[in-house]
């Protein structure tokens, strides 16, 4: 595998979207795309699989709700039954608010930390910005120069169709872009 990548810089999100779509159709490997804000439809253009984060969220939420229901039942009616207002020990309605809160809490924390984990974001991590202006007004597409057959000048010509403003070759460190 080559460790060289091509950075194509665009001025408009529409250009980036069209270029991404075309590059994927051509069969070149897209390593990543960097944009100043979330560009709708980019995930589809890059051919990414649907996010699995929703499943993490659902499972964490269910764990929170069911786990808390079980815990409340165990504390209030098995280990230490307390008579509240003459109601039965295993009163489901009184367990619902806490179960709901636990579901929201676990679903929220679960999703956020799963996202941080998957994107390898943690405190103290040094940002590697491929191109400083992606944090302002430029859109960058990172293409893998897969093998010797990848011809940079012809790729640049191809990208001209999508109003590419700048192309640059970088050497990727292992695992940096993918």
């Amino acid at each position: 595998m080559s460790d060289r990548v091509l950075l194509a810089t665009f001025e408009h999100e529409d250009d980036l979207l069209a270029a991404t779509e075309a590059v994927r159709r051509k069969g070149w490997r897209i390593l990543d795309a960097f944009t100043p804000y979330a560009v709708h439809g980019l995930d589809r253009a890059m051919g990414l699989k649907p996010s699995r984060l929703t499943w993490v969220c659902f499972i964490c939420g269910m764990t929170g709700a069911l786990g808390m229901l079980w815990f409340e039942h165990w504390t209030a009616s098995i280990t230490w039954p307390i008579d509240v207002g003459g109601k039965p020990w295993n009163s489901l309605p009184s367990d619902v608010p806490v179960a709901f809160e636990a579901a929201v809490l676990l679903a929220g924390f679960g999703s956020v930390f799963a996202l941080f984990g998957v994107s390898r974001l943690w405190p103290g991590k040094k940002p590697k910005v491929v191109y400083p202006r992606v944090t302002d007004d430029r859109f960058v597409l990172v293409i893998d120069e897969a093998d010797a057959a990848f011809d940079v000048p012809s790729a640049e010509r191809f990208l001209q169709e999508f109003n590419v403003v700048e192309t640059a070759e970088h050497t990727s460190e292992e695992g940096h872009y993918s």
């Binding site: 207002g85 109601k87 309605p93 009184s94 619902v96 608010p97």
Partner: peptide, 12 residues
């Protein structure tokens, strides 16, 4: 729905 129900159920 549940908020209405639970408050009434609790105070009884």
């Amino acid at each position: 729905w549940f908020s209405q129900y639970m408050l009434i159920w609790y105070s009884n």
